[in-house]
Computed example of a mutant assay.
Amino acid sequence: MALTEREREIVALLRTDPLLDAAALAERVGSTRAAVSVHLSNLTRKGVLLGRGYLLRAEASSVLVVGGAVLDAKVRTRVRPVLGTSNPGTFTATVGGVGRNIAEGLARLGSPTMLVAPVGDDLQGRTVVARTEAAGVDCRHVVTSPHPTGSYTAVLGDDGDLLVAVADMRATDELTVADLAVVPGLLGGVDRLVLDCNLQADVLRWLLTAAATAGIPALVETVSVAKATEAAPALDGSVPVHTVTPNVDELAAMLGRPVDPDPASVAAAAAVLHERGVEHVWVRRGAHGSLLSIARPGHPARVVLVSAPPTTVEDVTGAGDAMTAGYVHALLGGAEVVEAARFGQVVAALTCASPDTVRADLTPALVAAHLTPDAPSTEELSA
């Protein structure tokens, strides 16, 4: 829901003089103090005013992320893994969740970010919120779930590649539209919406509709093959979607048919999502980089291959979330989508080279130091 005309008038006055109180604002706009107090309350709920003293949200472009927040456990073998027996290895635990990871990545890159995610009324949930807030994310609107805080357990081989993962996402799986009633109001104070496919299809469609109504571009992060399959009905062409970010297997799951990994086949599959209202289909291809398919009304799709910069893989956990965070951050800064994809590829490579799901030292300067004109490079495919 966008700001009302009166709310925009009050915001303009507060940007000029942040010390104006409700009485002074009422006199300026020709209203009553009680009415202005209601407007101020609504602006706080929408995330435009931050706390007391009418501190305004920064004019920098901002983003709202709705999705999962969990405790991550990562187990990594020290030797080549052997199934069906015990393997020597290491264990680490940290905060995670696709939506939460994206939100932290955005905040560490300097984009003002709000997170709406479910956590249980338990120590794990309080830990997730505290650590996410410490990274700079606004967590005032997290949802308290009757279920325990979610968990994600990943088993990695000695080379850092994912072997298998198990996620308990009941808190997110059972979110309802009623649980997320705050979101349409928050959309009036942000510039982008990011959703992860841990959300049910009907909830996802409702959120996409709310974003379209507010005129806010929405990105959908597909999460996994299972979640992409469940979310596919939400992308039925009834509402526009700015970007969807599957890997090749997740793209196949959304279409309900196999997709060969070669660029021509991936591009053809992406065209089906364009027909379903998706403007940009950004397909992750691992070490081969990514394929970005761009649909413009009245024009054939533009297909661009974005290479992956060379990196030493320490841990792939969170790389896809990092790509999304980098892409959205670059778009918020005014980058064209291909440049945003290049930026995202570098953030993903930096994340793979770190043992952390979200690098604690992630900054725009770190990314810029690795974003040379040739790394990663792009190649356009002919139509």
Rank of each mutant, 00 (worst) to 15 (best):
M1K: 12
A2H: 01
A2M: 00
E5K: 06
R6Y: 06
E7K: 00
R8C: 04
R8A: 07
I10N: 05
I10W: 11
D21L: 01
A22G: 08
A24L: 04
A24T: 05
L25M: 04
V29G: 04
A35E: 12
S37L: 15
S37M: 14
L40G: 01
N42R: 15
L43D: 10
T44W: 09
R52Y: 02
Y54Q: 12
A58G: 12
A60T: 11
S61G: 11
S62Y: 14
S62M: 10
S62G: 11
L64N: 03
V70W: 03
A73K: 03
K74E: 09
V75S: 15
R78L: 13
N87C: 05
F91C: 11
G96W: 03
N101G: 08
A103T: 10
E104W: 03
L106T: 00
L106E: 01
P112R: 07
L115E: 12
A117Y: 02
A117Q: 02
A117W: 06
G120Y: 02
G125E: 10
R126K: 08
R131N: 09
T132N: 13
V137N: 15
V137T: 04
C139H: 03
H141R: 04
H141G: 00
V143Y: 12
P146I: 02
T153I: 13
T153W: 14
L156R: 09
L156P: 05
R170P: 13
A171D: 09
V177A: 14
V177W: 10
D179V: 11
L180H: 14
A181I: 04
P184C: 00
G185N: 02
L186D: 03
R192F: 09
V194G: 13
C197M: 01
N198S: 03
N198T: 09
V203I: 11
L204Y: 07
A210I: 05
T213Y: 12
E221D: 14
V223I: 08
V223W: 07
A226Q: 06
A228Y: 07
A228T: 12
E230P: 00
D236M: 05
V239L: 14
H242M: 06
A253R: 14
L255E: 08
L255Q: 13
G256E: 08
D260R: 13
D262W: 00
S265D: 03
A267C: 02
A271I: 15
H274G: 07
E275H: 07
V278L: 15
V283Q: 06
H288T: 04
G289C: 05
G289Q: 10
S290W: 01
L291W: 07
L291C: 05
A295P: 09
A301W: 10
V306L: 15
S307M: 03
A308V: 00
T311C: 12
V313G: 01
V313R: 01
G320D: 13
D321R: 03
A322L: 13
A322N: 10
G326R: 03
Y327P: 06
Y327C: 01
L332F: 07
G333N: 10
E336R: 06
A341Q: 00
R342V: 04
G344K: 05
Q345L: 07
V346H: 09
L350M: 05
T351I: 13
C352T: 06
C352M: 13
R359N: 02
A360E: 11
V367F: 03
A368K: 08
A368Y: 00
A369D: 15
H370G: 00
H370A: 07
T372F: 14
D374N: 12
A375F: 08
S377W: 10
E379K: 03
E380K: 15
L381H: 11
L381I: 08
